[in-house]
Computed example of a mutant assay.
Amino acid sequence: MKHQNLLRLCTAIGLALMASAVVSAESALPPTQQSGSVTYLSGGIGLEQSLAIKSEMRNYPLVLTFVGRTANNGNEYLSDIPVTIADRRGRLLLDASSDGPFLLASLPNGRYTVTASYQGVTQKHVVNVSSRGHARQTFVWSR
Rank of each mutant, 00 (worst) to 15 (best):
I81D: 09
N73T: 14
Q33V: 02
L47T: 15
N75L: 07
G110R: 06
P82V: 03
K54M: 06
A28F: 02
V114R: 04
V23M: 09
A71V: 13
K54F: 00
L103S: 02
G74E: 15
R111A: 01
T39I: 05
L62I: 00
L29S: 13
Y77P: 13
G74Q: 15
S24E: 15
S35M: 10
I85Q: 12
V114T: 06
V38T: 09
L104D: 06
L41S: 07
T32Y: 04
R88T: 07
R111E: 09
V67S: 10
G43I: 01
S98F: 08
P108H: 08
Y118F: 10
R88Y: 03
E56L: 00
I81R: 07
D80S: 12
G68Y: 02
I53A: 05
I81N: 06
V114D: 08
L41N: 07
L29Y: 11
V38W: 02
S79A: 05
D99I: 00
R58L: 00
A86C: 11
Y40H: 10
S24H: 15
G46M: 02
G36D: 07
S37I: 08
S97K: 15
L104G: 01
S24M: 12
Q49T: 06
N73C: 10
Y40I: 04
S50G: 12
L64Q: 04
G68T: 11
N75Q: 11
G36Y: 06
D95G: 04
N75A: 08
A116S: 14
A105C: 01
E26H: 11
R69N: 13
